[in-house]
Structure formats: C-alpha cells, structure tokens
C-alpha cells in the first residue's frame, strides 16, 4: 500500500489503484474459454494439453517468486519433484484417490519451501541462483540414492490412481487427466492471482524493486519473501503431483536440472510479473517443442536453440509486453488513471 496519509482522498485513490490492478483482464477470459474449448475441439490432443496445464501451473508458481518477489531460482524443480514423489508414494502405500495425494504433496513441498526459504534471504541474485540450484541438485541426488523409497534411477512405478473423488476414472485418452489438471490449474492460478494482486503482492513488487526502500516504508521484506516462497513451493509441488498422477510413474528426471531451466525459459517466453506469462509460455513452449520433435526427431534441439536465440535478440521485453497491447478489461467504463 502506498497510501500513508490518513487523508480520505489518498485512501480512495489507493483503493482505486488496487481495484484497477486486480481487475479481470480480457485475455484471462480468453485463456480459460480456450482451455475449456480445447477439451471439446481437440479430443486427440488431451495428453499434450495435460502436459501444458502441468507446466503452466509450475511456471505460474515460479512467476510468483520471480515476477513478483524478484527471486531468480534455478531450483524450483526441487518442489516439483518432491511433490511428484510424495504423490507417487501416497498412491503406492496409502490412498489411491488423487486429490488426497495432491494436497499432501502440496503440503510437503510447502514445508520444504518454508525451510529452504531462509537460505534465500541472504545474498544477492547470484547467491540465490546458486543456493536454489544447490537445493535442486541435493534433492535429485537424494532421490537417486534413496532407492529403497524412491526406486532410485529406475523410477517409482507400480502404482495406479483410483477415480478422482471416487467418481472420475482416469482413461487412456487422458480426458479425465486433462480436466483434473485444468481444474487444479484454474483454482491454483486464481488463488495466486488473488494473492499477487492484493496489497501483499504489491508489497512484493516493492521488495523486488528495492528491498532497502521497501524496508524503510515498513514492509517486512524477510517475512514476505518466506511467505511467498512457501506458497509458490506448494503450487509447484502440486504441479509435480499432477505429473505423477497423470502418468502413474515418477522418474528421477522430475528433479533434473533441465526442468528448472525449462520453466525459466517458459517464463522468459511468456513474460513475468503478471502470472499468465506462465500459461502463455507453457502453451507456446510445449507446442513448438512437440511440433519440432515430430518434424525432425534428430535435430529439433537445434531449432529450439535457434528460436531462443532469436527470441532474446528480438528482445525479451518486447516479447513479454505484447500482453499490454491486448484490451485491458471487459468493463465498459473507462476509468481515469492515477
């Protein structure tokens, strides 16, 4: 909150600003309509849509830390992977019902996020990069070594999921899986959106811009970072759980470094700081990757690299800012700026 004086004018101005920030944008509606329409229009593409939904949730959770709090993380997959393993283990040993596994995975990943968040309070971007990377690598090696629990390099297999809430069975075409992931993505995004566009989110942006100044206007930077990092970890863990549940398999690859890199890439493509960048980026990244790897199974990596170089040359900002050119809102009233 910027309003510091008690004058009612300032207060109402601040309230207006908050309202404007949190207004439902035009593209948001489009995204969800398109996602629902895809279910009916593209029945043969359920699996890749599922993959997109999972990657999107993962990317949106990273945007919360990166785009709002300004923490560059190369180890976000630690939470993703932990969530995947927890969901797998829950299904294997305890409950086959997926929602329970999803929630447990979220809580587990959140706990790890909370504990490790204290490590990222210190230092600058580079130290954070290294710390998060280190946590990711440690988790990967732990999963590899604890073969009695995780199946080691062979991966965790042999579990199957029951019907969701006892009602909806997973099918071979992946329809149930898609709807399930989409619902979780929607709920997750809405919750994160609520958070990101609240005064809390605004204070995060202040911390991102200048932590010292943020402190001087009485924003408890450390507390805020711990909170947001934990919340992001919860959703990343849930994304991992979705992957484990829709594939009924967990490979040690869920903790691999390339996943952290991929999700950063997704945000680079989609743009940071408005949450939907994760969704746009995930759609684009997955489709291009899939298309190229069908066209040329041997050399598609080359073209992905080429596209990325071009993207960066064109300018990341320009790329991410296209969203700003979209119509702002659905409401007709053209409100004045600040």
């Amino acid at each position: 909150m910027v309003a510091t004086s008690s004058s009612t004018a300032a207060a109402s101005r601040a309230a207006k600003l908050m309202k404007r920030r949190s207004r439902v944008r035009f593209y948001e509606i489009i995204v969800w309509i398109a996602a629902i329409a895809a279910f009916f229009v593209l029945p043969s593409k359920m699996l890749i849509l599922t993959e997109i939904a999972i990657l999107a949730l993962f990317a949106v959770s990273l945007d919360l830390v990166l785009g709002f709090a300004g923490i560059v993380s190369l180890g976000h997959t630690a939470f993703f992977g932990l969530g995947a393993y927890i969901a797998g283990l829950v299904a294997l040993h305890y409950v086959a019902e997926p929602v329970v596994g999803l929630l447990v995975a979220g809580i587990g990943a959140g706990l790890l996020g909370f504990v490790t968040s204290f490590l990222i309070l210190r230092g600058s971007d580079l130290t954070r990069l290294m710390t998060t990377l280190g946590i990711g690598l440690m988790m990967a090696e732990m999963a590899n070594q604890m073969a009695w629990l995780t199946g080691g390099a062979d991966g965790l297999s042999g579990f199957s999921l029951g019907p969701i809430l006892g009602l909806f069975e997973f099918d071979l075409f992946g329809k149930t899986g898609y709807v399930y992931c989409l619902v979780v993505l929607f709920v997750g995004t809405m919750l994160m959106r609520r958070l990101a566009f609240s005064p809390f989110g605004l204070s995060l942006k202040a911390i991102k811009a200048n932590p010292m100044r943020a402190g001087m206007i009485a924003i408890p930077a450390r507390k805020r970072i711990v909170t947001v990092y934990t919340i992001a970890a919860v959703f990343a863990g849930m994304a991992g759980a979705l992957l484990a549940q829709t594939t009924s398999f967990v490979s040690p690859d869920v903790l691999a470094f390339h996943r952290s890199a991929d999700v950063l890439l997704v945000l680079t493509i989609g743009g940071t700081g408005y949450l939907y960048g994760g969704i746009f980026g995930a759609v684009l990244f997955t489709l291009v990757k899939d298309w190229l790897s069908i066209v040329t199974p041997q050399y598609w990596m080359f073209y992905i690299g080429l596209i990325l170089v071009v993207l960066v040359l064109v300018g990341r900002d320009r790329l991410a800012r296209w969203v700003e050119y979209l119509p702002e809102r659905l409401s007709k009233s053209k409100e004045e700026g600040r």
Binding site: S44, K45, L47, I48, E51, G155, L172, F173, G174, L243, T247, F249, S251, D253, V254, A256, S293, I294, P297, Q298, W300, M301
Partner: peptide, 22 residues
Amino acid sequence: VLRDDAGVADQTRRIAQELVVN
C-alpha cells in the same frame, strides 16, 4: 513412426500413449 523422447520418462509415456491413441 520414429519419435524422440530425449531420455525423459514422462515424455516417453506421453509419446507412447499418443502413438497408440492418435
């Protein structure tokens, strides 16, 4: 029909499923 999974298990699974279904 040759498809690349890049050695990543969830990709293998998705590709196999797509090949069968689609």
